[in-house]
């Protein structure tokens, strides 16, 4: 029995390693190329290690301005999303009302709508109301598109905070707003950070929304400006493209690790999505 179990474990290990090897190739390319003075399109041992690629891209024009734009866009929209979601989740989680169920169903329905499909009308609408090519317009749209899922997650996390603690506060004369701010939110710290990080990561990686709603190159976030490596600069410098990809991706990977740790294992999001 024991030997059969060992064989089975070895077979499982082998299967996983094959998949891991296939999945790791593109990742290996980006890391090796970023350090390679003569990078091309295939995975190869670098012709010597260098940080020149990073040196070349760490300029205001190529890296810092787009990253700052990303930060303003995604940070602003995340803040707006989390504040609105926390406020909205409170009555949904705390008070019985016949309005709750239809509202939650609508929210859940909206979480799975393909946002890509409405970008053309959003563009046309933004032209009409003069929000096209503005940071605030893009922030509002980002927040609205992320809000259904954020409300849904936030409400589920809030349901986990026992109501008794708040009732004590109410008898002491605290208002609903005070009890949300002082009691409920601090108790659901991990939940709030999951909603925050998840919203931010989704927006940081989003290409289509800023691509459609922003026009001025100076305002473009990193998700759009990365395409300039192909367009305007003639010969594609693959090493620099790889270096930029790493710089641009690192924040979201770190944030993901942060919440995965906090919730014990990387499986929290999968579980959260299941409802």
């Amino acid at each position: 029995m024991a030997s059969r179990r060992t064989t089975r474990r070895l077979a499982a290990d082998a299967g996983l390693l094959v998949v891991a090897a296939a999945f790791v190739l593109p990742l290996a390319w980006v890391i090796l190329s970023a350090l390679d003075p003569h990078a091309n399109l295939r995975v190869k041992t670098p012709d010597g290690l260098t940080l020149d690629n990073f040196d070349a891209i760490l300029t205001p024009e190529i890296t810092f301005t787009p990253l700052l734009n990303s930060l303003i866009l995604c940070g602003g929209a995340t803040l707006l999303t989390v504040v609105c979601a926390a406020l909205a989740a409170y009555p949904l989680s705390r008070f019985r009302s016949r309005f709750n169920r239809p509202f939650l169903l609508t929210i859940l329905f909206a979480t799975s709508l393909p946002i890509t499909a409405i970008m053309v009308p959003v563009y046309a609408l933004f032209v009409q109301v003069d929000l096209i090519d503005t940071m605030q317009g893009t922030i509002f749209f980002f927040a609205a598109s992320q809000l259904p899922f954020a409300i849904w997650l936030m409400k589920n996390f809030m349901d986990g905070v026992p109501k008794e603690l708040e009732e004590a506060a109410w008898t002491d004369g605290a208002s609903a707003f005070q009890s949300l701010l002082r009691i409920v939110l601090p108790l659901m710290g991990p939940g709030v950070s999951v909603v925050t990080v998840f919203s931010f990561v989704m927006m940081w990686g989003n290409f289509f929304v800023p691509f459609m709603l922003l026009l001025t190159p100076d305002q473009m976030p990193a998700s759009v400006s990365i395409n300039d490596f192909f367009g305007n600069r003639g010969m594609v410098a693959y090493g620099q493209l790889a270096a930029f990809s790493i710089v641009y991706s690192t924040p979201v990977i770190l944030l993901y690790v942060l919440i995965a740790r906090r919730l014990g294992g990387g499986f929290a999001l999968g579980g959260a999505v299941k409802g």
């Binding site: 891991a20 940081w204 991706s249």
Partner: peptide
């Protein structure tokens, strides 16, 4: 190890994933 690699592919921004696989599938690619 496997979980880490597969999840990294998922967490990467969409456009970066696009470039990595563009390089992978190109004629002179991996």
């Amino acid at each position: 190890l496997t979980g880490g690699i597969v999840v990294t592919a998922w967490v990467l921004p969409e456009v970066v994933a696009g470039f990595l696989l563009y390089a992978f599938f190109r004629r002179e690619g991996t």
